[in-house]
Design a protein around this nucleic acid. Structure first.
Lengths: 142, 142
DNA sequence: TTCCTGAAGTTGTATAATGCAACTAATTTG
DNA sequence: CAAATTAGTTGCATTATACAACTTCAGGAA
């Protein structure tokens, strides 16, 4: 039963994982880094959220999110608004500057991926995206 | 032209990238870590190689590979053999213990992936593996 | 042969991303 | 009201990486 298929996925995932953690500090390119990108995107899509909810949804430790949010606040990409109903809690709200940066960074990423799949058929791109999404959902479950 | 397909790939790749860099030191599970895994695999498949060649093939800095190789040597998974023809160079050779660990670690990884794709059809697994491989090759080029 | 250039490898230092544990302050519950 | 819980922060540790400076050796040029 599909042992070799599994083996390919396992191997290629290892390779991909390593490539994706290659440091290369994306100097000068943009002010956003890949860590805070998803956090900012979440705030863009879902509106204002607190550290707790963000950490849960991103499946990260609160300490990590807390730091990422602080970084974004320093850069002026989000505002930190005290929750009027809970003195311990805050909402992080994306700013106009944050939206601009987010879009810029997204565009830059998309150009990179465009170059990588430029010889691929639409069918392949569609399948790849769909399966990646499905895989991520499986990862998210367990 | 396939802008939305590209967008999906871009997004899902960001999510995957983050999940794959989650630290969770795989305590007690095995003595091998994901960094040295590919290095050891390379030595298993291709025979004895030096730091330079390994660094080139793995697309890593020599300093990184040098440290990883030293770690593997400490654990007894590789032997460091001076190159008789070049006083500066060495060959790293996988040991029997190294092979055992490699196989164990690979099995553990495969079980994890098996769980993730257990509801997938063989066609989906095949396509996912193939496209991952194709994507990695594109990454390798540029 | 000697000298200079370059190559293989190592080590020091820096950076990025993360988690765990201890802490603070505020809220909720009994 | 006191105790337990929760939101968030901060200190510390770990993993993975790159760049730069260094050491030792090799190989060609003068």
């Amino acid at each position: 039963m599909k042992e070799d298929l599994l083996e390919t996925i396992e191997l290629e995932m290892a390779i991909l994982g390593r490539r994706l953690t290659s440091v290369t500090p994306n100097k000068a390119q943009t002010n956003l880094d890949r860590a805070t990108y998803l956090l900012l995107l979440k705030l863009f899509v879902q509106g204002s959220l607190g550290v707790k909810v963000l950490a849960t949804e991103l499946q990260l430790d609160m300490s990590t999110v807390s730091r990422q949010a602080a970084t974004l606040e320093h850069k002026g990409y989000v505002n930190k608004i005290p929750d009027p109903l809970d003195g311990r809690a805050y909402f992080y709200q994306i700013t106009e500057l944050g939206k601009t940066e987010l879009l810029t960074y997204k565009q830059m990423r998309m150009e990179k991926f465009r170059g990588l799949v430029k010889e691929w058929s639409d069918e392949e791109c569609e399948a790849f995206g769909r399966l990646l999404k499905k895989f991520n959902q499986a990862l998210h479950q367990k």
